[in-house]
Measured scan of single mutants.
Amino acid sequence: LPHTAVCLVCGEAGKEDTVEEEEGKFNLMLMECSICNEIIHPGCLKIKESEGVVNDELPNCWECPKC
């Protein structure tokens, strides 16, 4: 993702460097949905019932829970 990318919900950049544990890092890193192209911190999504499908081949790419 470009350095200028920010979260659609909170308007902040990736914050994964501020935590140690892997789950915390994931919730604070910016992810781009391969379907709707929205860039968001997974932790900013209010959807709890399902998780997005992470694409292991492309960094910061997933199918968000909304899609």
Rank of each mutant, 00 (worst) to 15 (best):
H41V: 00
G24R: 09
L30R: 07
M29K: 11
H41Y: 00
E51I: 07
K66A: 04
E32S: 12
M29C: 11
C36A: 01
P42E: 03
K25G: 05
G11Q: 14
E23N: 10
L30P: 04
W62L: 04
V6D: 05
S50I: 11
N55Q: 07
L8N: 05
V6N: 09
M31Y: 05
E20D: 06
V9T: 14
E63R: 11
D56R: 14
G52H: 09
A13Y: 09
P2I: 15
K15A: 03
C67H: 06
C67V: 00
H3E: 15
E23M: 09
D56V: 09
C36V: 00
N60A: 07
E12I: 04
C10D: 01
H3T: 14
D17K: 07
L1S: 10
K25N: 09
G14R: 12
E21D: 11
L8M: 14
V53T: 13
A5E: 01
M29N: 04
L8D: 02
V19R: 13
C44E: 01
S34N: 10
S34L: 04
C64S: 01
L45I: 04
E63P: 00
N55K: 02
H41E: 00
L58F: 00
K46T: 15
C7T: 03
A13N: 02
H3G: 15
E23Q: 07
I35K: 10
M31N: 01
P42V: 04
G24H: 15
T18I: 08
G52N: 09
G14F: 13
E21L: 05
N55I: 12
N27S: 09
K48M: 14
E57H: 11
V19C: 15
K48P: 08
M31C: 06
S50G: 14
D56P: 13
I40N: 14
P59D: 04
C10S: 05
D17Q: 09
L28W: 12
V19K: 06
L28N: 15
T4C: 04
E32Y: 02
I47H: 06
F26A: 07
P65R: 04
P59F: 06
S50T: 06
L8G: 02
I40M: 12
I39W: 08
N37R: 14
E16K: 07
G11I: 01
K66C: 01
N60S: 08
V9C: 01
K25V: 03
E51K: 11
V54K: 09
K25W: 00
L30E: 06
F26M: 13
